[in-house]
Simulated scan of single mutants.
Amino acid sequence: MRVGVPREIKVHEYRVGLTPASVRELVAHGHGVLVQAGAGAAIGFADAAYEAAGATIAADAAEVFATAGLIVKVKEPQPAEWAMLRPGQVLFTYLHLAPDPAQAKGLMASGASAIAYETVTEAEGGLPLLRPMSEVAGRMAPQVGAHCLEKEAGGAGILLGGVPGVPPARVAVLGGGVVGANAARIARGMRAEVTVLDRSTRVLAALDVEFGGAVATRFASRAAIEEAVIEADLVIGAVLVPGAAAPKLVTRAMLAAMRPGSVVVDVAIDQGGCFETSRPTTHANPTYVEEGVVHYCVTNMPGAVARTSAVALNNATLPFVLQIADKGLAEACAENPHLAQGLNVHAGGITHGAVADALGMDHLPVERAFLR
């Protein structure tokens, strides 16, 4: 199979779908790889490195989309890319379709099959292709939040870790999963006062053991969320419902009751965000102020540390890329039900139940999709 890697065109997105090391593995399996010129240059992966790994360099994205059977990306395709997809082609990337009906319709109209990294599952019940970026975003959240708390960034002028005689900032983390746990580790390491809220008592117990009580844990009732948000200097939204839109846990009224210059970092923004006042931003203009609160809602947070993120993502995605390339989409999904869970669009229909529900569209089950 010919595998294509276009250069990412989302604003300030420097990650790349395949690293030279991943290309070398595909070539060793007998596949051809076509990489758009400059696709990895911004993070130190020169075209020469791809050629040394066995790839062919394409002049532009049009050549990649026109000749590759499998397109491997990082971020959701932009409208110009929808138009280049074709029936029978496979797209493997992050999609986040639940809050994006326009993209869903564009992919359906293309006739291509689209697999979303964020809904591929594993036997243990996790999301293996979302995890590395969740780890990155979780670890980034306290540091970007700490910067936003600085006065020149619009914040209240509070040092996250405090100093002797001055208390540290109070950080509330909504969700104790991969993002939330990583956020809590970094925030605590920066000497902040940290509280994690989650609806799973098992998750809360695990965090309590890990931190030895140094991080407070609370069951995420509405009352507890409201109290924690109003008292916090920094709130990190780390909730996830796989494939579905994020629940709006924090209302405008809660934000209005926070101290002016407080900060929220909405890591759930890819799925619509968990703050009522959240709207997507980019690295070019990452923040805005609403109800006196600084909002950081960048939809591709890990893109800021693009080299680390690209390598971490490739470590997780490569086995699935090889499986699709080696066997073809239908056989790969038949053999690996976890990969099949990643299929979001096929034969013009939405094949993931949670995505279909979020979009208010009909659900085409995967087993029926391949009969079309």
Rank of each mutant, 00 (worst) to 15 (best):
A102S: 08
V311W: 05
I230H: 00
T201V: 15
A156N: 03
R368G: 14
G44P: 02
G88S: 05
V72Q: 11
V311P: 03
V23T: 04
N314K: 00
A347E: 13
M84K: 15
M254F: 11
S22Q: 09
T308C: 10
N285C: 05
S134N: 04
R188L: 13
M140Y: 05
V33D: 08
F370G: 02
E13K: 07
A46P: 00
E13M: 11
A37Q: 12
G111D: 06
M84I: 06
P167Y: 11
G237L: 12
E81K: 12
G106S: 02
L129Q: 03
E63R: 12
A68C: 11
T277M: 01
P101N: 01
A332L: 05
T281Y: 06
T201S: 12
I57V: 09
G40A: 11
D357P: 00
M190I: 10
Q103V: 04
G328I: 07
V289F: 01
M258V: 10
L234F: 06
A172K: 03
R252V: 14
Q323N: 12
A66V: 03
P87W: 08
G145R: 07
E291G: 00
G237C: 07
A369R: 04
A184D: 12
P101S: 04
V35D: 01
G177E: 05
D60H: 11
S221G: 13
V120L: 09
A325P: 03
F275E: 09
G44R: 12
P247M: 10
H352W: 05
A66K: 02
P286L: 03
V294R: 02
P77W: 01
C274W: 04
S278D: 06
E118G: 04
S221L: 08
A98G: 10
A334I: 12
L371A: 15
A156W: 01
I350D: 05
I186V: 15
V289I: 15
E63D: 08
L34S: 09
S22A: 15
P142Y: 13
I43G: 02
G177N: 11
Y94W: 04
R131W: 07
L174M: 15
A37R: 15
G32D: 15
